[in-house]
Deep mutational scan, measured.
Amino acid sequence: MFYPNSPQTSPQLTQIPYGQQYAMMQRQIQQPYHPFATTEPQARLYPYHYQGPIQQEQGGFITQQSTAASPQYVQMRVTPVDQSIMSGYPNQTANGSSSSSFNYNIHPQQQQQQQQQQQQLRHHAMPVGSVPLQDDRYRKQLIVNYLAPDVTSTDLHELFSRFGELDGARIIYDKQTNMSKGYGFVYFCHAEDAKEAVERMSGYEFHGKWLKVGYSTNPLNIVPSNSSPYVHAGSRGAAG
């Protein structure tokens, strides 16, 4: 039997160049792979992502010199942007860049009308829970959420009447099932009393439920100042 490094198959040491006398086997001759043993700084910083320098080929596509990437890492192929796409944008300079302001050559009167329309939209648009300043009635009506099913309009009136005089209180019921929808409205005579009720009743436990109280901004629920107070009856038909 002959071994790869046996004296019968191995040459004389004098015939082997210096430095390879003890590297006779194939696994010894093959050098191990060192990912950080390279002179390129990109490979030292990113050993798993770097795959060699990027070269520009004919046709405008950018390719990489090395083989496919590892399945664990996804390499994105980048193509140059066609400058003709950006030619339609206004205020574009000769080098292809555009300024931040756009001039669509709008007539001054049209621009003024658009600004007025935007101001009107901001004036009428009102986020949930906010209180408008032009109508004091919005500051007097509250919406009470997360009410228990057994709470009546009379219970709601008695709960909030300790903060001040009320114009009314009612629970909203479903017309088909005649069941409470879980929320109601309270109408105060003074805005200061309503503000105190919002601050003190939010998070209050009532009939096993934690109440959420806020201003009601729905104009359909506003009680006119010259109208008669609501009837605080315990029956659902009268309260709904």
Rank of each mutant, 00 (worst) to 15 (best):
F2N: 10
P4Y: 03
S6L: 06
Q8W: 01
Q8G: 08
T9I: 07
Q12E: 07
L13Q: 11
T14S: 09
I16M: 11
I16A: 12
P17C: 06
Y18I: 07
Q21G: 08
Q21Y: 03
A23H: 12
A23T: 12
A23E: 12
M24N: 07
M25I: 10
M25S: 12
R27G: 04
I29E: 14
Q30V: 06
H34Q: 05
P35G: 06
P35D: 09
F36N: 15
F36C: 12
A37Y: 07
A37L: 05
T38V: 13
T39A: 07
Q42M: 04
R44D: 03
R44L: 08
L45D: 14
P47R: 13
Y48V: 08
H49T: 09
H49Y: 09
Y50T: 14
Y50S: 14
G52Q: 08
Q56T: 07
E57I: 10
E57A: 13
E57W: 11
Q58E: 07
Q58A: 05
Q58I: 04
Q58R: 13
G60Q: 12
F61T: 13
F61E: 11
F61V: 12
F61Q: 15
Q64I: 03
Q65C: 07
Q65K: 14
S66Y: 11
S66T: 07
A68T: 09
A69H: 11
A69W: 02
S70P: 03
P71W: 02
Q72K: 15
Q72H: 11
Q72D: 11
R77M: 00
V78N: 15
V78S: 14
T79R: 14
P80I: 02
D82E: 10
G88C: 08
P90L: 09
P90T: 09
P90I: 12
P90Q: 13
P90G: 12
N91T: 09
N91R: 13
Q92I: 06
T93P: 09
A94T: 10
A94I: 09
N95I: 10
N95T: 06
N95H: 04
G96W: 10
G96Y: 04
S100L: 09
S100R: 11
F102P: 07
I106H: 04
H107T: 06
H107M: 14
H107K: 10
P108M: 11
P108N: 13
P108R: 11
Q109W: 04
Q109R: 11
Q110E: 04
Q113P: 07
Q114D: 06
Q114E: 08
Q115M: 09
Q115R: 12
Q116F: 11
Q117N: 09
Q119C: 14
Q120K: 14
Q120P: 09
L121E: 04
R122S: 04
H123K: 11
A125V: 10
P127F: 09
V128I: 12
V128F: 13
V128H: 06
G129C: 10
V131E: 05
L133R: 14
D135Q: 03
D136F: 09
D136N: 06
R137E: 01
R139E: 04
Q141S: 00
N145T: 02
Y146P: 01
L147T: 11
A148C: 12
A148V: 02
D150F: 15
D150R: 15
V151M: 05
T154G: 06
T154Y: 02
T154V: 05
D155H: 14
D155P: 00
H157P: 00
E158C: 15
F160S: 01
R162P: 08
R162T: 11
G164H: 00
E165W: 15
G168L: 00
A169Y: 03
I172H: 01
I172D: 00
Y173C: 13
D174A: 09
D174E: 06
N178D: 07
N178R: 07
M179H: 12
M179A: 09
S180T: 12
K181H: 02
K181P: 00
K181E: 02
G182N: 01
G184I: 01
F185S: 02
F185E: 00
F185C: 01
F188I: 02
C189E: 04
H190T: 13
E192P: 06
E192W: 15
E192N: 04
D193W: 02
A194H: 00
A194K: 00
A194E: 02
A194V: 02
A194Q: 00
E196D: 10
A197T: 02
A197G: 03
V198F: 14
V198E: 05
V198D: 00
E199F: 15
R200G: 04
R200H: 09
R200Q: 06
M201H: 01
S202F: 15
S202Q: 11
E205N: 03
E205V: 15
F206R: 01
F206L: 08
F206I: 03
F206K: 00
F206W: 13
F206H: 06
H207Q: 12
W210I: 02
W210F: 03
W210R: 02
G214C: 05
Y215R: 02
Y215C: 03
S216M: 01
T217R: 02
T217M: 03
N218T: 01
P219R: 00
P219A: 01
P219F: 00
L220A: 05
N221V: 09
N221Y: 15
I222T: 03
V223Q: 06
S225A: 12
S225W: 09
N226I: 04
Y230A: 03
Y230S: 06
V231L: 14
H232S: 08
H232D: 03
H232R: 08
S235R: 07
R236Q: 08
A238G: 04
A239L: 05
G240V: 06
